[in-house]
Amino acid sequence: MAAEPILRTEALTRRFGGLTAVNDVRIDLRMGEIHAVIGPNGAGKSTLTNLLSGDLPPTSGRILFRDRDIAGRTPHRISRLGVGRSYQKTNIFKPFTVLENCRLAAQSRAPHALRILSRAERFRDLARNAEAALELAGLAQRADEIAANLSHGEQRQLEIAMCLATAPTLLLLDEPLAGMGATESARMVELIRALGRDHAVMLIEHDMDAVFAVAQRLTVMVNGEVLESGMPEAVRASPAVQSAYLGHGE
């Protein structure tokens, strides 16, 4: 993977009082590459995602996205630069229809969002982007359902579809498989693999089978620090990783 990283962190650190949740982390994310981040609970994976998406400001360090330091910018600014994220805990607009969830996501990219007297449905391009995202995430036939009525797995798919409707270049996926059944998981893995071809993807996941099935690069975090990073097979073979994490038979 010779491509230049689209996102690169330098000495990224986040402290909560006395606890250092993310400590001196360096990570590179590249276009067309799925970079999985694994580690035991409390390793700092979700905090890392929150730092990259702007949901949390870092205590110190830099986040270079396309060579621009975005550390500490607000989530909406980072989102507009082309960084989309999904949440570990399903985070959707439950009272709205599935399509409206994605239409709103697509609208965030539209310059006419502040036109207050035109009907939202008039903007066909938004609906098309939303439908395309639903199609990609495999939810097209559920478009008119109220999001609250979707199964857990479908809500996870919607989470990703909303993210896609904003047309991001970098996807931060925080445990997309959490709580999914086997069939749903298999579909999601396929989706992630497909997205990895034309996006940069950071995948946080506990499901090791899924991780080794799709990841081209693997980073192991323990106690807020990067323990090992590299090609999945090399990382898997690393003695430090074996003893600290994988060795426990997950």
């Binding site: 909406h76 949440y87 607009f93 609208q107 502040l114 009907r119 909303m162």
Partner: peptide, 21 residues
């Protein structure tokens, strides 16, 4: 309007609206 839909989104889940941009 798109503006009104955005307000509804803010009411339903403001944090998600921010992360959508």
């Amino acid at each position: 309007s798109p503006f009104g839909r955005a307000l509804a989104g803010i009411r339903a889940n403001e944090q998600r609206m921010r992360s959508l941009g």
